[in-house]
């Protein structure tokens, strides 16, 4: 009976693992094949990788899409870490009745679906364009700005600040550090794990964001990787080899982040549920 159960367990998990991994294997194999071989369902690696890469970089602007995606994801993540941790720290360390009410109101913004925001945001950036075209419609900054702080990250930092030893703050004050000095020189260095976890989540969200860039970006040179992949995929005569190559290139950064920082990633995901 026990043996049967164990065979059953391995069988189920193997099928689940195979189903989960197959699309990844498929895209890795297909990026080395010609379009014709891919349509025939070839499961053998081919010799067309460099051809696909050259085609992609020469004809489809993947270089600028990569740059744009990195620019957006890195700037948004850095700003998000600083602003959200300041707020999470402020709410927890300088706790007061007024701030608790503000915190609760901020949390309500997590319930607002993006679909309800996209039209007013688009119009807002239209207005901004009249005054500051450099951060208005069809700029990378317009993609970044709405994601610079979200209530989720403020909440996340507040939860994690609860575990920060408050005695260190007193010690800093006795040493004559200013309040902001305590934040940057004592608090930040001791929150490396939390910063890493929040940083990964923010980077991935911004790297993979699709709907908002689709709304706000118009010119091809401002395209991000998801927009490029989406455009390649909706073409009438798709070159499958090129498309799979673009998908692999677009997935490498998040996959690397995941493999190297897996521990923080899982900690960050589950840490936000606790408490």
């Amino acid at each position: 009976m026990n043996k049967l159960k164990s065979i059953f367990t391995y069988l189920i998990l193997s099928v689940a693992a195979l189903v989960s991994l197959f699309p990844f294997l498929w895209m890795l194999i297909s990026m080395t094949n010609k379009s014709v071989d891919i349509t025939q369902g070839s499961l053998m690696p081919g010799t067309h990788l460099f051809e696909n890469l050259r085609n992609l970089f020469e004809n489809y602007n993947v270089g600028s899409a990569l740059f744009n995606s990195f620019f957006i994801a890195i700037i948004a993540t850095v700003l998000c870490l600083v602003i959200s941790s300041l707020a999470g720290y402020g709410f927890e360390v300088y706790r007061s009745k007024g701030k608790d009410i503000v915190f609760t109101i901020l949390l309500l913004s997590m319930m607002i679906p993006f679909a309800a925001l996209m039209v007013p945001l688009f119009r807002l950036f239209g207005d901004i364009s009249q005054v500051f075209p450099a951060i208005g419609v069809d700029t990378l900054y317009a993609v970044i700005l709405p994601y610079v702080t979200t209530a989720f990250f403020v909440f996340f930092f507040r939860q994690n600040t609860k575990m920060f030893t408050k005695d260190l703050i007193e010690a800093g004050r006795i040493d004559g550090l200013s309040e902001i000095g305590i934040f940057f020189r004592i608090y930040m260095p001791s929150m490396k794990n939390t910063l890493a976890a929040a940083g990964i989540i923010s980077f991935m969200n911004n790297w993979n964001n699709y709907l908002w860039p689709l709304v706000i970006i118009q010119s091809p040179e401002n395209q991000t990787i998801p927009l490029l992949i989406s455009n390649l995929g909706s073409g009438y005569t798709p070159d499958y080899g090129v498309i799979y190559t673009a998908i692999v290139i677009g997935t490498i950064p998040t996959a690397l982040v995941f493999f190297f920082l897996q521990r923080y990633f899982v900690e960050g995901m589950t840490g936000s549920v606790k408490g």
Binding site: N208, Y210, P226, S230, L232, G233, I243, I247, T254
Partner: peptide
């Protein structure tokens, strides 16, 4: 993987 990439 990004939502767009796996969708395609």
């Amino acid at each position: 993987i990004s939502l767009v990439a796996y969708s395609v």
